[in-house]
Design a protein around this nucleic acid. Sequence first.
DNA 1: TTTCTTACA
DNA 2: TGTAAGAA
Length: 79
Amino acid sequence: MNHDIPDHVATFPISVVKDLTNLSGRQIRYYEEQGLITPARNEANRRIFSLQDIERLKKIKKYIDQGINIAGIKAMMKD
DNA sequence: TTTCTTACA
DNA sequence: TGTAAGAA
């Protein structure tokens, strides 16, 4: 049986993402507002994140911890 | 109980 | 960025 979760499939609620990234809910929502991440939404308008979203946030946190601002991060991660 | 949006002493 | 409020 395949128990792996495809990295592009969104399944985690924000509470899990907070624990996995050490970012606050405020930060996670703000980064979405800034277009750095685009998590999906479920029928209840709840954000649901994929492993890809989580890796992206970890990368963002790394930059934030280095003192880089949103504009700078946007430029570097502009995919 | 958890998450969402909006607003700001 | 944190936190308060009110809604869902």
